[in-house]
Design a protein around this nucleic acid. Sequence first.
DNA 1: TCAAAAGTGTTAATAGTACACCCATGA
DNA 2: TCATGGGTGTACTATTAACACTTTTGA
Lengths: 225, 225
Amino acid sequence: MAAYYDINPRFYVAVDCIIFGFNQKGLSLLLLKRDMDPGRGEWSLMGGFVQRDESVDDAAKRVLKQLTGLTQVYMEQAGTFGEINRDPGERVISVAYYALINIDEYDKESVKKHNAYWVEINSVPELVFDHSQMVKQARELMRKKASCEPISFNLLPKLFTLTQLQNLYEAIYGKPIDKRNFRKKVADMDFIEKTDMIDKTGSKRGAYLYQFNHTAYGKDSKFKL
Amino acid sequence: MAAYYDINPRFYVAVDCIIFGFNQKGLSLLLLKRDMDPGRGEWSLMGGFVQRDESVDDAAKRVLKQLTGLTQVYMEQAGTFGEINRDPGERVISVAYYALINIDEYDKESVKKHNAYWVEINSVPELVFDHSQMVKQARELMRKKASCEPISFNLLPKLFTLTQLQNLYEAIYGKPIDKRNFRKKVADMDFIEKTDMIDKTGSKRGAYLYQFNHTAYGKDSKFKL
DNA sequence: TCAAAAGTGTTAATAGTACACCCATGA
DNA sequence: TCATGGGTGTACTATTAACACTTTTGA
């Protein structure tokens, strides 16, 4: 039975992370300026190799934690990239994941140490290997998912204003949204709760803070933004 | 630089195919009754190991061709499965693909030789390893994609009746669809063309045959069924 | 003649889109 | 006092959903 497996080749398997963050300026990706070969000096995604003692999903979590210090992050597979020469150094099969993190909560020391920077999503330079393609694919998947499932809240602080939420969706879709229509939809979703707290950092008048209630959101809930 | 790679382990990488077919009775999957270990006697997806001289996508195409004799088949990744013990025999990382084929056009000899059978999708037994999970995931992805992109025509003959098309969507969604509403939508899509041919096999009266016009379908076309 | 599938329109409900002004506040 | 972002409602359009009968023909 051993032969059943042994006659086949084995491959390095990597994970690469498309890390989304959101701030006033819009969506950004956390990218590395590589200080090692292959691809030295070029921009790339944060990646790493799958190890024996971890699942592929766990490898992605580990790699993300390595860079950001974060655990419990929302991640989704964005596809597996297996072209023979995608990595010029060696044959590597890579599984891409996208992660949505709160841009205010991560280990800045670690990011600095890794030579990583936030890059606005519309100014992302050409990346090494097939990483640009991974980004493109991840963006599309994220957009689709964010339109019908409440994953976008992972990019916001626990308490957020409706303007922030709208800005986020404008960044995700890359186009403006009508304020009144947007707020009407939000008002129809009971699991996006208005609090009695007010944020004064964004405006003089102040805006009500809202929160996403995970418990109130059931699988029967409708979400469409 | 070699060390950059060498310190990492390598893995067997497999592909597994969720092969959809459609006939009068609805959607079916082409499944193998395994005559080899591991999992002898159990039902499984058709799979195979990625080789050095092929991309992962190409491996999936090769494996599909091996079983069905078909090339040029519509295939999509359904996800990568990388749990440590998902295959009890050895650590194998598997990339799942779903394929949509015309159930009337495949190599029946080859299928017989591989001990493969069409199983109605609602009667699929428990499968080996994590294959049941792969099927579940593939079904959901396929459903979503079929609802907004014209991939379903891969499951039909070139010429089909509207009843066939409707039955197909009822099978995909697992629920009945109103005939008049369905036909109204189809009529609005110029790239689903009525021919002057009539199919008499499905009814005494006969029904017009339609065809999907790939050329007429552009990326600006709207598709929603 | 009848069983079985093909074909055909209208109405109601819902969801989506377009659009402009007043409010509260700190500088 | 004024610049800035916060907040609100209505009319129109498009899409979706519900619903029943006539036609054709081979057995």
